[in-house]
Write a protein that binds this DNA or RNA. Structure first.
Length: 254
DNA sequence: ATGGCTACGATCCGTAGA
C-alpha cells in the first residue's frame, strides 16, 4: 500500500497538479491539507474521474482536510473527539484495513501568542485521542502537515530558527509525545539525504536555496512501521508553475 | 534589512500562512 500526504495550499488552484500527481505516483490514498474549500465545492467528480473517492471536511479560505482514496472509506470521522474546534483540521477514515488520520496542525504564528497556545492545546488533545485510536487500531497511519520540525536536522538553518515557532522546545516536546505513544517517524526509519525538507517559503528564493523545514510527516503504528519499505519526499511538484509551498511525502507499506 | 510570496475575500489592501 502506498500512502501520501500533501499540503496543497488551495485545492482549487492545485487540482490539476494533484490529478497529474495521482496519475504518475498512483498512491492508494493521499491526505490533503489546506484545501480551502467548502464541502459543496469539493471536486469529487474530477477525482472520481481519476479513479479516487474522497472524504473531506472543509471551510472557506482557511484550513480544510481530505482523504482521497482508491478503496472505499469507512468509519469516517472529523475533528478530535471532545476537543471543540470550528477549524477543519482533522479527518480520519479506515481503508483497506488501515486507520488513516489526516492532520493539519495549527501554525502557531509566534511563540507566546494566542495561536501558539491553541497549537499546544490542540497537540495535547491530539495525543490523548491518538492513544485511544492506537488501542483500537493496531494498523494506524497518521499523516499530515504537523507544523513542527522535530529536530535540528529538519531545519535548514537551526541557528536562524532557534526558539522560533515550528522549532520551539514546547512544540518539539508535543511532537515527541506522539512518538512516545509508539508511533514512528516513518521518514527516519530509512537513510535519507541530508537537508531533506518538505516546505520552503515562497519568498527569498527559499526553494532554490533549499532553505526549508521538514514539517510534513507520516507517523506509523509499530505494526505498520514493521512493514514499511520506504518514505520519500517528492520535490518535483515544488518546481512547477504556481506550486504549493509544500511537497508531498509518500510511504510504501507491505 | 524582520521584508522579500501566494491565496483569499475583499477591493485597489488586510489577513494568514510558516
Amino acid at each position: 500500500m502506498k500512502l501520501a500526504t500533501w499540503n496543497v495550499n488551495s485545492l482549487k488552484v492545485r487540482l490539476q497538479q494533484l490529478v497529474d500527481w495521482l496519475a504518475r505516483e498512483k498512491p492508494d490514498a493521499i491526505c490533503l491539507q489546506e484545501t480551502k474549500l467548502e464541502d459543496g465545492n469539493f471536486p469529487a467528480a474530477e477525482l472520481q474521474a481519476a479513479g479516487y473517492r474522497a472524504a473531506f471536511a472543509g471551510q472557506k479560505t482557511y484550513n480544510g482536510v481530505a482523504i482521497v482514496s482508491r478503496a472505499p472509506l469507512a468509519e469516517v470521522g472529523t475533528g478530535i473527539p471532545g476537543f471543540e474546534d470550528h477549524q477543519k483540521r482533522v479527518i480520519a477514515a479506515t481503508l483497506d484495513g488501515v486507520r488513516v488520520v489526516c492532520l493539519y496542525a495549527p501554525n502557531g504564528q509566534a511563540v507566546g501568542s494566542e495561536k501558539y497556545d491553541y497549537k499546544l492545546r490542540w497537540y495535547g488533545a491530539l495525543r490523548d485521542w491518538l492513544a485511544e485510536e492506537l488501542s483500537r487500531h493496531p494498523r494506524l497511519a497518521v499523516l499530515g502537515d504537523l507544523n513542527v520540525a522535530p529536530e535540528d536536522r529538519d531545519v535548514h538553518d537551526p541557528k536562524l530558527w532557534e526558539g522560533q515557532v515550528h522549532v520551539s522546545e514546547p512544540e518539539r516536546t508535543a511532537f515527541r509525545a506522539l512518538l512516545a505513544l509508539g508511533l514512528k517517524d516513518c521518514f527516519r526509519l530509512f537513510e535519507q539525504p541530508e537537508k531533506s525538507f518538505s516546505w520552503w517559503d515562497y519568498r527569498m528564493g527559499a526553494f532554490r536555496r533549499n532553505a526549508g523545514l521538514r514539517i510534513d510527516h507520516i507517523l506509523l503504528s509499530p505494526e505498520l512501521a514493521a512493514g514499511c519499505s520506504s518514505c520519500t519526499i517528492d520535490k518535483a511538484p515544488r518546481k512547477l508553475e504556481r506550486p504549493s509551498d509544500h511537497a508531498p511525502v509518500t510511504a510504501e507499506l507491505s
